[in-house]
Amino acid sequence: MSSVSDTAPKPQRRLPDLHVLGPILALVALIVIGAAMNSNFLSYANITNVLARSAFIGIIAVGMTFVITAGELDLSVGSMAAFIAGLMILVMNGALAGMGAGLGVIVLGIGAALVAGLAAGWINGVLITTMRIEAFIVTLGTMGIYRSLVTWLADGGTLSLDFGLRTAMQPLYYGGILGISWPIIVFAVVALLGEGAMRMTRFGRYCAAIGSNDQVARYSSVDVNRVRLLTYVLLGLLVGVATVMYVPRLGSASSATGVLWELEAIAAVIIGGTTLKGGFGRVWGSVVGVLILGLIGNILNLTDWVSPYLNGAIQGVIIVLAVILQREGKAGA
């Protein structure tokens, strides 16, 4: 939660209307409901669990915010994460014989995941910008490709990290500094850097400019294709980072890994107030969106409040409500 309060914006041009407050109100309401329903909700262990498990989608959602702000979309991130996870496991298992279960193999695995993420994002970006194919179609295609590739790599089963390596790598998910685990720290750092990039750098402003009107941006001598390509490369890299956090948790990857992550990430970005058609992006909003989604699942597991059959319905209602809150604020603004 630290990342939320750290990145909360000072109201600048507009007053803090519902548009800005909507997602925060929803988050606060969920925290209050959760605390009222179960005394363990605010326990250190539970908060840590929720933050750590939200980190995967959260890190991806930060990258997705830039892509959506620039008026694009990426449906391939979930499959991409599964594929990178599979690749990372294969690379590490392969290098184990020569290098032993030590830091070397882990660094190699992390490097492989980051490079694979960069490459996968670059492929998406190049197909979209230089080949001029719709982002929806390109990433729908790569979504299928990566999902099939991981199934193929795993021979239809599950790729598992060597047991000794898994033990050596576990601290990457379960360990941390001062009781804050690594996924939470990485998520917070990525969110802070993302917020900074969106608000204070030329890159962030270009993304918004391209998203609101790419023709005008082009006439204003913005290299539209280059910026778009960069958003996809950035997202790919962040998918790689998320995968580095994901693999040590269970030490396995299969075709069931990362299913629907793309939709969760997109939902989090939209809940947070970024407009789906581009032109306006809010990284801290995406972080709040991810936490909202994570908390809903957590609260539903901690209570017998509703039939588990209805979990999806509750999530759907809250997503739509959070967005309605913003739209009302926007209409008044």
């Binding site: 909700f41 498990r53 396995s252 699942g297």
Partner: peptide
Amino acid sequence: EHGNWNRDDSFTVMQDFLSR
């Protein structure tokens, strides 16, 4: 709760069961 025959989902559900 439903863990959907999935490792990640069951990990999450079990964490929450252990908290509860």
